[in-house]
Design a binder for these strands. Structure first.
Lengths: 210, 210
DNA sequence: AAAAACTGAATGGCGATTCATTCATAAATC
DNA sequence: GATTTATGAATGAATCGCCATTCAGTTTTT
């Protein structure tokens, strides 16, 4: 059935939806699911093809290698997340409120797609090579956004100035990251996003009794 | 050279060090190094054997499979860390001081052995299967120690009682974990342990200006 | 001279990638 | 508008290299 679908059977020139690269998307979705369940190294390309309902060889019409599939998953997701986030963040004045929204978005995004979250938390960490490559790209940018927000908060007097903004941003990221990891591993299916508030309460106010 | 060394050439019955399983240790050390540099899935058993200066087959005299090597690395390290930590922690009265020591130990231990740290941060996260298996074991125990310490601090009035101790412990762990990950990926070789103080300052006091 | 350790070449299985072939559809020709 | 020809997406069996594991033989220890 060779037809990188153009229309979908409805009235001739229906919606101009993703004309050609639709199957590419399908493969990425299938791969995310398969990688999340079996792990990248334990997943066979034929598993991905099977999940996507296509032949093994077809995968190579859209991706150069198995490795490239994993990369694409990150690239797309991260790009989307950063772009989306930046836009929304820009409109918020107060640094603390902005930080709050970042945390919410972080957990909302991953909390909305468990498979994607698993691939992000688990497979991304699965090799130093990957981490380094990835680190250089979107990840560093994300950390830097948090960093800037904190510095801004210090300048505007919302945050203490006797703390290191770099350490600070790592702590926030680490905390959020841990929430996601725990959520993934948890048997109980609780909603992830609300944890943002909990995290920020502590991150902002500290745990010590005054 | 078959000789699971008993003494080390010094005066006959020298120290009663690990009588037989010495080579086992050597393999674990070699594997830690190799896995850290190339990643578990990209490492060949022959790489490990080579690093340890023994034949491929010899590895299987001490381990049932490649997988078991990785498991052993975790089990040993974690067991050692928990045992060592528990003993020291018990002697500290104040919950906040105890938490401080836990954080220091965490970073000291991993900061002292970069290869071990890489395996812990990267390979341990490399598969959900592994995380789940491991999660059930030492990891959960570690988190629980932090948890108890925080609860104790709440009872004794050192910590606020309007916060969730579980979330709290995850945040601290996540923050420390992130410090280690960043340290591993960093090109600059800074000492890791001192970061504990930075982390705790924020964890205890929060970042908000009062 | 047993027994215990060790060796490393050979095996066997797996799985990423390739590529000759198929065939639905589009374009050209009548 | 029917017939022929061209296109290229899709297929999936076959290939090919890799590497964990084994084991028959060697060396060392007791």
């Amino acid at each position: 059935m060779p037809r990188p679908n153009t229309s979908n059977g409805k009235s001739a020139r229906a919606v101009a939806v993703a004309a050609v690269p639709d199957k590419r998307q399908a493969i990425l979705r299938a791969a995310t699911k398969v990688f999340a369940r079996k792990g990248y190294f334990n997943s066979k390309v034929s598993d991905v093809a099977g999940e996507a309902g296509i032949a093994d060889g077809t995968v190579y019409l859209y991706f150069k290698s198995k490795d490239e599939i994993l990369h694409s998953i990150f690239d797309r997701a991260m790009e989307e997340f950063i772009a989306e986030g930046k836009k929304e963040i820009h409109e918020i004045k107060r640094a603390d409120k902005r930080l709050q929204r970042i945390a919410e978005l972080h957990l909302e995004k991953l909390g909305a797609d468990r498979d994607l979250a698993v691939v992000f938390q688990v497979e991304l960490r699965g090799s130093t090579k990957f981490m380094e490559e990835f680190s250089a790209a979107g990840f560093a940018e994300y950390l830097s956004i948090i960093h800037q927000t904190i510095e801004d908060g210090q300048k505007t007097g919302v945050f203490r100035t006797d703390i290191n903004a770099t350490v600070c941003s790592k702590i926030l990221f680490g905390a959020l990251d841990e929430m996601v990891t725990n959520w993934i591993l948890s048997r109980n299916h609780y909603p992830l996003a609300p944890m943002a508030e909990e995290v920020l309460k502590i991150f902002f106010g500290g745990i010590r009794e005054k």
